[in-house]
């Protein structure tokens, strides 16, 4: 059963499959296809990955709101029958104008909203089923990302938990000097920028003093490879989308 997990799918191949799917979806407007892609991503995550149901729901909430927002936007302001192009000077006609626009715009609204859902489905599918180190290693081995970029990205990502602490330090430093710092004050942000630049110099020096070099050959802890199944899965998904685009009625 462990062989069927999408976590094992090569991350670079997975990334290109997601990006190609997005490009395919960009040039079509069929609701059944976009909703189908969204459902497919959910099914893959629930049955063929180790992604926790709770984290799927948690990340889906903002995505659903974004999709809902686009849906309502399409409902009001589709180019076919936007309420901006109607005569709304007569106040009594406004509700009618709204209703008229809504009834004809329902399809474009659904197209806009479901497209966001499909993209979010693909994005969440990738994010929740891809280990960050495995992803970056794969970018190094399959996409020829140079090790200095790869380890630079990882170092930066791993610094994130320190940023909050650093912000508090900067605020305290200003307070001890008797300088007021509000919530929207840029002063601590500027101090953090200065420190970030010093950090980057220090980390670069630390890495180099430990023998990190970009030009010499090195060994790797994780070495992702692309197998036949990685490619087959990608081809299967993309062909399924192309088939759906060609055969779905709406």
């Amino acid at each position: 059963m462990n062989n069927l997990r999408v976590e094992r799918w090569n991350p670079s191949v997975k990334m290109f499959t997601v990006l190609l799917s997005v490009i395919l979806l960009s040039f079509q407007y069929k609701i059944m296809v976009t909703l189908g892609v969204f459902l497919f991503c959910l099914i893959m995550m629930i049955f063929f990955s180790d992604a926790r149901f709770k984290s799927i729901i948690k990340i889906l909430i903002p995505a659903t709101f974004a999709a809902l927002g686009m849906f309502v936007m399409g409902l009001y302001y589709s180019k076919n029958n936007s309420i901006t192009s109607m005569d709304v000077s007569d106040i009594s006609s406004v509700p009618y104008a709204l209703r008229a626009a809504m009834s004809t715009n329902l399809i474009s609204a659904a197209q806009l909203g479901s497209r966001i859902l499909a993209y979010a489905g693909l994005g969440i599918f990738f994010s929740l089923t891809t280990d960050e180190e495995f992803f970056i290693s794969s970018l190094m081995h399959q996409c020829h990302l140079s090790p200095k970029f790869a380890y630079g990205i990882l170092a930066a990502v791993h610094l994130v938990p320190n940023l909050g602490k650093e912000y508090k330090n900067a605020v305290f430093a200003f307070r001890t000097r008797g300088i007021r710092v509000g919530v929207f004050s840029l002063k601590p942000v500027f101090a953090m920028l200065v420190n970030s630049i010093y950090w980057s110099e220090n980390i670069a020096m630390a890495m180099q003093s430990k023998g990190f070099s970009d030009n010499e050959s090195r060994t790797y802890y994780i070495e992702p490879k692309v197998g036949v199944y990685d490619i087959l899965l990608s081809i299967a998904i993309l062909s399924l989308i192309v088939f759906a685009i060609n055969s779905a009625p709406i």
Partner: peptide, 20 residues
């Protein structure tokens, strides 16, 4: 010609902008 410190600088600045 990108140096390691350039990459780290941009990475950390991106993280900072990312949080903002």
């Amino acid at each position: 010609n990108w140096k390691l410190k350039d990459v780290l600088m941009m990475g950390i600045i991106s993280v900072l902008f990312g949080v903002i």
